[in-house]
Computed example of a mutant assay.
Amino acid sequence: MKRSTTTLAALLLGASTALSFVPQGARAADTGPLRFVLVPKVVHPWFDKVNDGARAAADSLSQLTGRKITVEYAAPQTADVSAQNDIIERSIATHPAGILLDPLDGKGNRAAMEESLQQGVGLTIFDSPAPEGLDVTAVGADFCEQGTLAADRLAGLIGHKGAVAIMMGVPTAPNHAERAACEKKAFAKYPDIKVVATGIDNDSIETAQKQAAAIMQSHPDLAGWVACDAAGPVGIGQAIRENGRVGKVAEVGLDNLNDMIELIRDGVAESSASSRPEMQGYWAVIAAWQKAVGQKTPKFIDTGIDILTKASLQAGAAR
């Protein structure tokens, strides 16, 4: 399936069309400001891109409806479930129009998510499957497809044989866990590929770099890497470069951090499967706003996946 790169500029270009479904009465019935709180997993460049998309949607809605709509960004400093729950609970107490949440742990965040709904604060999930049994909209990619695309691409790069490793991200995070499971399932299709190691980086580039270096030292015959989060492949790429393994250890990354894009341009990583963070933030705000003005929202909004390669990046730069 052919994928094309989606930029924030493209989102903004289509804003007037995308927002043409303003519910009848939403422009005139209520004129007070609406504030949404965006709670990511952790302070991280990937979530900065989500926030960019969220603010773009808020600005477009403000212009379209004449009502001030804002997004407050509240990120835990580390990928810690308790810290994230504390932010959710403090946000609920300020009575926002809605909370946009990327849960660190479906079970660990459950009570805080239920409290949000019980207190009448709308909840929209992004970058994660919808929690079972909760009436919320989830915005994101097909995470299994994303992991499978990365694993199958790596398998082709190494001739469908050899030792591979997976960087797991935050294992309790529903999207990271789903990618990891589907990557393992994809590799299992190839009898001559063996997953010899898994790292856990907890969405930290520095941790990923250290874990990747240690794994490559323990497995000098390692043929390639995939990851389950955005930080992991950056750290992996740094370890490949620092250990003189460029051209010897293949990498297919995840998502579109600037550092990931540079690794592709430099030939350290062959490609990356990106889940379009700007679009996730954009449509999470649209869904949260619809809910706030009393409209029904879809169960899931699929923002799609881009395959980024050196060729596609060059083509995008030339446009």
Score class of each variant (00 low, 15 high):
S128W: 02
W289K: 02
D255F: 00
L313H: 03
E278N: 08
K107M: 14
T207Q: 12
A9P: 12
G14I: 11
A213F: 12
R319Q: 15
I87M: 08
P233Q: 08
S218C: 14
F36Q: 02
G247W: 06
T172N: 05
V252N: 03
I301V: 10
L61T: 02
A231L: 06
G247C: 09
M168S: 05
Q209C: 06
G237M: 09
V293H: 13
E270D: 10
I215G: 07
Q314H: 10
V22Y: 11
L100K: 06
E178T: 09
V121R: 00
T78C: 09
Q24N: 13
D255E: 00
S82W: 15
A155T: 06
I200C: 12
G162S: 05
L19G: 07
D52A: 07
A57L: 07
P45S: 04
Y73A: 04
P23E: 11
A54T: 06
D48L: 02
I166R: 01
N51R: 00
A284H: 07
R276S: 00
R90W: 12
A230T: 06
Q77C: 15
A74P: 15
E262M: 06
R319A: 15
T148E: 13
S91F: 04
R319F: 14
G66T: 05
M168H: 08
A208F: 11
Q280Y: 05
A213E: 14
L11P: 03
V136P: 02
V37L: 05
G304Q: 06
A288T: 13
V81H: 06
I301W: 05
A288D: 01
